[in-house]
Amino acid sequence: MGDYLFYALASALVTFSLLAVSLPNLLHGAISLIAAFFVTAALYIMLQLEFVALAQIMLYIGGIIIFMLIIILLTTGLGVENRHKISNSRRLAGAGVSTVLLFGLLYAIGSKPSTVLVKDKYRAAPVTMDDIGLRLLSTGKEGFVVPFEIISILLLVALVGAVVIARRDSSVTYSHGDGQKESA
């Protein structure tokens, strides 16, 4: 039963991901990415990582993808931006390169079967939210408090940086927009 579910979810995930990267309309691509993330969340649940699944839904779908949708709408209007078609040769080259990469990785992993891959019987106990919370804030030997704090600083820096970058640069005047010249 689990195997069938996995195959179904995996094929759905691959399909949605393919759609996300190849649909000409960006808006459609972003929406199929949302679908792919939902499927991924389902896979996390199958792996007994409920918290990660929730985070996936809330952070990725609720935060990042929404953010991306806004940008798409802001810059391209309904996502129909592809005035220039992507040539078939480019698609073919991209497909070739990624296939080569895929088989390279598979070959690398398959050619040296490690004990990790062969020993397939161990299953971890389900990870609860408590565990994750304690580990994140634990100052002990195996705690993740330092990366956690660094991540929070990183977020802050990224926030400020994003504002600085996206702010209109007063030293540059733009030839488009509403025609008003920016003054410092």
């Binding site: 691959v14 991901s17 391209t76 390169v97 990785l105």
Partner: peptide, 25 residues
Amino acid sequence: MLCAIGVYGVLTRRNLIGILLSVEV
């Protein structure tokens, strides 16, 4: 496979946002 699909997207997308999308994959 997801990784390869993402790489394919990064390589073929013309729009910058499309590339970001592929990176997410």
